[in-house]
Design a binder for these strands. Sequence first.
DNA 1: TTGCTACAAATAAAAATTATTAATTAGGAG
DNA 2: CTCCTAATTAATAATTTTTATTTGTAGCAA
Lengths: 136, 136
Amino acid sequence: MQNINIELLKSYGLKATPQRIDILNTIEKLGHANIDEIYEIVKKSNPTISLATVYKNITALVEKALLKEVALNNFKSKYEIIKDRHSHLICKVCGKVTDVELNNEILLLSEQLSNNNNFNYKDIELNIYGICSSCA
Amino acid sequence: MQNINIELLKSYGLKATPQRIDILNTIEKLGHANIDEIYEIVKKSNPTISLATVYKNITALVEKALLKEVALNNFKSKYEIIKDRHSHLICKVCGKVTDVELNNEILLLSEQLSNNNNFNYKDIELNIYGICSSCA
DNA sequence: TTGCTACAAATAAAAATTATTAATTAGGAG
DNA sequence: CTCCTAATTAATAATTTTTATTTGTAGCAA
């Protein structure tokens, strides 16, 4: 098994179909991708794949908590492989998403914030909107 | 002019139509609302309004920076009147959004994070996902 | 082999959003 | 106050996005 994503899929109880492997590889390569980006790229190696399959698999992978949706203002949701907590720098011009390490300080402050408001904290999402260096 | 939102609209160079006033009043009352919620409520006081009108006005108000989109994972985007920086507690079960005061500490940490990454910081969005007290 | 299951492709259907057009209205000029 | 004009709206229509259904196929188990 050369491809780590095959193991990943199986460890989550999912069959490692070529389509799913392609989808995961694509997201992994891009870091973040929305449905259309994934579809366009996967089509190259798998020309008969249908858009519905991408939707269905993305949904399945999100349900299995293998992928995470990143809802964005003004852009279509992107998806990323779940890994360490991080924050997103989102360019208001081109929509590019860049990950940055999320420090524990922010994490703790967020948990405090939740506790103070009688809210059962599960997950944090810190999105920073601005202009990226290439668009500046 | 009893209604503050009329002045608000004019100060942004928009005509204060009953539809817009209704939409703003609704969002103000609810704090956060998605397109459908707004439509359903505005329809009561304005039964002939069309859904397309709500879409168009929401888009216009967002463009004029009078409203802010709040993109949510798994739920349709909600809209809020732009005011002081705050964070959102988002219930994963019912989708309810609650505002909480955002402390300066988090704000500063986010700006630092941006600067460290050569990113021109504009705006922060801290969304905390979890379970609200009524769903717990 | 035969039957069952999981899966995908292709389609169809539904839901959400945006565009068009003709009629109406808000707000300013006189 | 009344009239005029540009902005706005309702009512579609059209498009886009997302989800569901149908059909076929591959692989496994008995």
